[in-house]
């Protein structure tokens, strides 16, 4: 691959991702509305897609207020961290054969590292806001991340064991015949649950919990800084969807009548829809229920899954 090609891929991925993040504003509103027997925004532009434009313009022109009691520099950096870390995670995702920004041999670890970095934005944002609700949100965010980060990593180890590699390209190739969602169903379910918690989307939006904490860690944010959190969240669900597809649903593999990129996009979109459906249908659990569920149910299950996978892998190797 020449340098020029590489730059094109980087720019292309960035362009598509940012547009997806913006477009999801519209998709989410329309889908939520449809599932609630409403129509949703359908006035501006064809099918109301220009609501994205209106929303972005609104975010740009809103007063960008930094509270006088806030820790100014930390307050400003926090939103940048979330968008940055999520965007960096996309680096390792193979969208189609040859279309990957960085084919790292520790790809999966890089993803885990980056998604853990994302929690800094919540903690720092909540801390710098100097507001009790923000701080409570940040605290919840931190403990939720610690809880769910653990078995997000563990749930992926089954895949790594079968493949024998952390490289995302190798993982996709290993699913040529059978997708990992069939050999690792538990891993998939737990990864997805952890992913929802990781992006703190509903029903696991404990750090934001509008009805309890106003807006949680971003209660003090306005204008484009809030917009960064917003984009970070949408990029986050795109990331988890893309990761689920890559790790468990065969990545770009699919019957040959569609190009690999289309298969990848199609599967990712399905998972994006699932994220929104989760938001539309499930109520938010209580904070302690969520943490209890994580440590007492999911962790043992994921450990059992890991051991069984390991045993089978060893057995297959020895025979």
């Amino acid at each position: 691959m020449t340098v020029m090609q590489h730059i094109w891929i980087v720019l292309g991925v960035l362009f598509v991702l940012l547009n997806i993040a913006a477009g999801l504003i519209w998709v989410e509103r329309r889908l939520l509305a449809l599932w609630q027997d409403r129509l949703g925004p359908n006035r501006a532009g064809p099918l109301g897609i220009f609501i994205v434009l209106a929303d972005t313009l609104k975010l740009f022109f809103k007063e960008d207020w930094i509270p006088p009691f806030a820790d100014k520099w930390v307050f400003i950096t926090a939103p940048a961290i979330v968008a940055g870390s999520v965007l960096l995670s996309f680096v390792i995702i193979p969208f189609a054969p040859g279309i990957v920004v960085a084919d790292l041999n520790v790809g999966l670890l890089f993803f885990l590292a980056m998604s853990s970095l994302g929690v800094y934005s919540i903690v720092l944002g909540g801390w710098a806001s100097n507001n009790k609700y923000a701080l409570l949100g940040a605290m919840r965010g931190a403990s939720q991340m610690i809880a769910y980060e653990v078995f997000m990593g563990l749930s992926l180890m089954g895949v790594v064991m079968i493949t024998g590699s952390f490289n995302m390209g190798d993982i996709v190739d290993a699913q040529k015949n059978v997708w990992f969602c069939f050999t690792q169903p538990l891993g998939f379910i737990i990864f997805f649950i952890a992913g929802v918690a990781e992006t703190h989307r509903l029903p696991f939006d404990i750090p934001e919990a509008e009805s309890e904490l106003i807006a949680g860690f971003h209660a003090e944010y306005s204008g484009m800084k809030f917009g960064m959190f917003f984009i970070g969240e949408y990029l986050g669900i795109t990331l988890i969807s893309a990761m689920t597809v890559t790790l468990f649903f065969g990545g770009w593999h699919g019957p040959a009548f569609l190009p690999p990129l289309a298969w990848f996009a199609l599967k990712t979109i399905l998972f994006l829809g699932l994220f929104i459906l989760l938001r539309a249908s499930l109520p938010r659990p209580r904070y302690d229920q969520l943490i209890e569920y994580g440590w007492k149910v999911l962790l043992p299950v994921v450990l059992a899954n890991l051991m069984i996978t390991g045993a089978i892998a060893l057995w297959l190797k020895s025979t």
Partner: peptide
């Protein structure tokens, strides 16, 4: 909730 996609809108 998903089935509501095909219901008549209010």
């Amino acid at each position: 909730v998903f089935v509501h996609l095909f219901k008549k809108k209010a």
